[in-house]
Design a binder for these strands. Sequence first.
DNA 1: TACATGACTCTTT
DNA 2: CAAAGAGCCATGT
Length: 95
Amino acid sequence: MNEQTHERVREIIAAVPAGTVATYGDIAALAGLSNPRQVGWVLREDGFDLPWHRIIRADGVPASHLRDEQLARLRAEGVLATGQKVDLRRYRWEA
DNA sequence: TACATGACTCTTT
DNA sequence: CAAAGAGCCATGT
C-alpha cells in the first residue's frame, strides 16, 4: 500500500463532518483509488482514531460486524436510519 | 507463485 | 426487493 494514498484516505475520512455519512466508494474516488475495498482495508488497519462510523456501504447499510454500533453513533449525531439503512439522499456528504 | 479472505460495488436474474 | 456473479486490490499463508 502506498503511504501517501494511505494518508490521503485518512485525511478525507477525518474531514467528514458529524451528522453526515460517506460511502466507501466516495472516499475511494476522492483519494484516487480504483477499488473501494482498499478504503475498508485502511480503516481496518489504521482507522481506530478516525470517525469510521460515518463510512457506510453504497446501499446505506454499515458493515455487518459494526452495524449496531455504527447506527447507534450515527443516531447520536442526528443521522436517522430506516431499519438498518441510512437515507443517503439526505445525509450523504459531498466534498 | 497460487489461493483464500475481506469495513466494497455494480449489473443481472 | 433479494440473491448471485464478476470485478477489484492488499495481505497472509
